[in-house]
Design a protein around this nucleic acid. Structure first.
Lengths: 185, 185
DNA sequence: AACTATTTTTCTACAATGTAGAATAATAGT
DNA sequence: ACTATTATTCTACATTGTAGAAAAATAGTT
């Protein structure tokens, strides 16, 4: 049962090279499968390397998780220009919610990040969806804050109670927001 | 510098007795001061006992934190019967939000609890506030879900970015909800 | 070709955490 | 006086993030 200890030091180039992208992908996969933020050792495990190898590509765990977050947030729904704003908004929100709900821990990382990049992405897509409504700036911001924080709240509830809450639970409250939005138009 | 190692075994009754309530209070204090969920060893430290002594009163850390949560949640604002519903609602929400915002980790514990007791408490107070509106059941539930999850979202943002977000940030979105509520009356 | 510097990796080690299990001492019950 | 129960400390273990050093392959320089 020799577990084949790896040789120390830089491997010869024949071996499949470790990259930041590979690490991010493994972390994403583990996060989704295990429904929690993976440990560095777990990530290293599936990559077949020592845990400390990860630290050559990321200065610490937090940096790795931020990269994972950026990678994940780019997968949310990209609104189409043609559709009804209500439909597009619902699709966008559900996609965001499902991403957060299926990746427990992601939300906390996202909210703790200094870089506003990832948070901005949802904001931009929301703006493009709500553009046809031509809301005044203040009304848009109110609605955005309400929407974003509401979704975050639901996502947190989903990850604390997996299998109990479905992403459909936002339908009702979303309608409430819709009607409030139409009033302010 | 004798650090005065404690004698092993049950202490004689003269010593100030450890109780579940004392443990809960110490945990609350640490949670508030350090802005995070304390470790068992920290709690035991301020109580001057060994970490394992805690386990005589709580079967595990989770049970202790649930007790802390129940204790904390009872401190939220109790609505007065006389006031305007908008004012009372705002006070209730802010009180809840500030509790969650100043006790990072509390929200996750609350949402993970099987016992619905603590979550119900806010629900009840909300019902008493909104009673004068005589909303249909479905509309009340929509509004409650929106409100609760929105507050949770804001609370999470507050604990991830301490000192950046104030509890006043809910004013705008709250007004949005108010107007939606009045429409459904 | 020979040296040196750099890059990429593993190894060892440490502190912090939750908590199981055993030892121990005070008290309560008989 | 003996036994059982209760309240406590002690020791130990697995898991975590990660610092620091050693090692091996590669790249750069003369």
């Amino acid at each position: 049962m020799s577990v084949k200890e790896k040789k120390r030091g830089r491997p010869s180039q024949s071996q499949s090279r470790l990259t930041a992208e590979l690490i991010i992908l493994s972390a994403r996969k583990l996060m989704l499968e295990n429904r929690k933020v993976p440990s560095i050792r777990q990530i290293a495990g599936v990559l077949g390397v020592d845990a400390m190898a990860i630290y050559h590509y990321f200065s610490n765990k937090s940096a790795l998780l931020e990269a994972v977050t950026i990678s994940l947030i780019e997968t949310i729904y990209e609104p189409k220009a043609g559709g009804k704003w209500q439909d597009e908004l619902k699709l966008l929100c559900k996609s965001y919610l499902e991403l957060l709900g299926t990746h427990p821990g992601l939300l906390e990382i996202l909210l703790s990040m200094q870089s506003f990049g990832p948070a901005q992405l949802f904001n931009q897509r929301l703006m493009s969806v709500l553009a046809p409504l031509q809301l005044p700036q203040a009304a848009f911001e109110q609605a955005r804050n309400l929407l974003v924080d509401y979704i975050h709240g639901v996502a947190l509830a989903m990850q604390c109670n997996p299998d109990v809450i479905s992403s459909d639970c936002i339908n009702g409250p979303l309608c409430l927001i819709f009607s409030a939005l139409e009033d302010r138009r």
